[in-house]
Simulated assay, not measured.
Amino acid sequence: MADTMAAAVWTGAGNPLQVERIPVPQPKQGEALVRVLSCGVCHTDLHVMKGEVAFPSPAVLGHEISGTVVALGPDTAPARGVDVGATVVGAFIMPCGECRQCERGRDDMCLPFFAMNRLNGTLYDGTTRLFREDGSPLAMYSMAGLAEYSVVPMNALAPLREEVPVEAAAILGCAAFTAYGAVHQTAALQRGETVAVVATGGVGSSIVQLARAAGAQTVIAVDIDDEKLAAAQKLGAHHVVNSKSTDAVAAVRELTGGAGVDVAFEVLGRQQTFEQTVKMLTDGGRMVAVGIAAGTSTANVEITPLVRRGQRLMGSFGGRTREDLPAVIDLAATGVFSVEDTVTRTYPLASVGKAFDALARGEIQGRAVISMAT
């Protein structure tokens, strides 16, 4: 293994990603070093790059990966099928396993993950694993997967089943994992319920698949792009609505006999779509907010219908890593979730800037990935 690696370094809001050579990181106790094969291209990274989500710079972003474990940290025993040589998927929520939230099974609310990684760009000893060649530190967004090697806490890894293509499998760590948490943990979707999915990018198209697989009676995909809607229909949506040319709320209600849907997922994080999604609910319906918003964005929700009609608004950040990541991998291995159909573009690391530019322009259906082998 070489002493240095290629990594996409972000130097601050508005600056493009720059591919640099930096030292290969070394894992500490409870961590693994993964040779990254693929890393997903996610809107959350784009929010960080644009300064819409606060994060320290310089940093290496990228938070859903697939790859091979090449080393374990000192005094670190193999666990849950993760050992040197294993092909793995890494989830963006990296639970410490010891805090109050982790002990009660709420990996998605891990206190050190939010306090140390999401706010400071470090792992749980308060330090980063990434440095430039001059010794200056680089912050880590989750496991900093836009690089040839990544240090990942063992609790954030799960072995990949051989039925799943390794390169496309990276999206299981965020796109599918976030969708699984929204559908099964937050919404607790029941067979026979009706569903609307507003915005059908990587996470939205994953929700379409998982809601259909969970037995939803009707799945309605809403977007402003006809090509994305056609892709959502291929992935299992019963109906599609172009909200650019159609009153989406009226259309969803018409498709449900005037009632509205039992569960509506908002996957964009914008005021207009948030407010729109709430209005799609039937009496007693649940609105699940999944999309990360820019800065301190807010939305207006009419109070009286919320109270009188017993509706619920719920936030859903992701799945519960130790429980849900293996479940997502199983769904992909059995064909319930298709990584091949969800991943529509692959870029080499040298073209990482072009990938995020295409994402910002809304050109990517489903999910794109960065391949370190290309």
Results as ranks from 00 to 15, higher is better:
Gly51Met: 11
Gly67Lys: 12
Lys50Glu: 15
Ser66Met: 06
Gly97Pro: 04
Ala77Ile: 03
Ile93Thr: 06
Glu52Pro: 07
Pro56Val: 13
Glu64Ala: 02
Val89Lys: 10
Pro58Trp: 03
Glu64Arg: 06
Lys50Ser: 14
Leu72Ala: 02
Ala79Gln: 14
Cys96His: 05
Cys96Pro: 07
Ala77Phe: 08
Met49Pro: 04
Pro56Asn: 10
Glu64Trp: 04
Val69Arg: 10
Ala71Pro: 13
Val60His: 05
Gly85Leu: 12
Ala91Val: 03
Pro95Leu: 05
Gly85Asn: 11
Ala71Gly: 10
Phe55Arg: 08
Gly85Met: 13
Thr76Tyr: 05
Pro78Cys: 00
Ala77His: 07
Val70Pro: 00
Val88Lys: 06
Ala77Pro: 13
Gly62Pro: 09
Val88Asn: 02
Cys96Thr: 02
Ser66Glu: 08
Gly62Glu: 15
Gly62Trp: 12
Phe92Val: 12
Pro74Lys: 00
Cys99Trp: 04
Cys99Ser: 08
Ala54Cys: 07
Val70Ser: 07
Pro74Gln: 02
Gly90Phe: 04
Gly62Tyr: 13
Leu61Asn: 10
Asp83Leu: 08
Glu52Gly: 13
Ala79Pro: 14
Ala91Ile: 03
Met94Asp: 09
Pro74Tyr: 00
Glu52Thr: 09
Ala71Met: 12
Met94Arg: 11
Ala54Met: 10
Ala54Trp: 09
Gly81Pro: 00
Phe92Ile: 06
Met49Lys: 04
Val84Gly: 02
Val53Thr: 13
Pro74Ile: 00
Gly81His: 10
Gly51Leu: 10
Thr87Gln: 08
Ile93Pro: 06
Gly73Val: 01
Thr68Trp: 09
Arg80Cys: 12
Pro78Met: 09
Thr68Ser: 08
Val88Ala: 01
Pro78Arg: 08
Leu61Met: 13
Gly97Asn: 03
Lys50Gln: 15
Phe92Trp: 14
Leu72Pro: 01
Ala59Pro: 11
Val84Cys: 00
Pro74Trp: 02
Gly81Ala: 09
Val82Leu: 06
Gly67Glu: 13
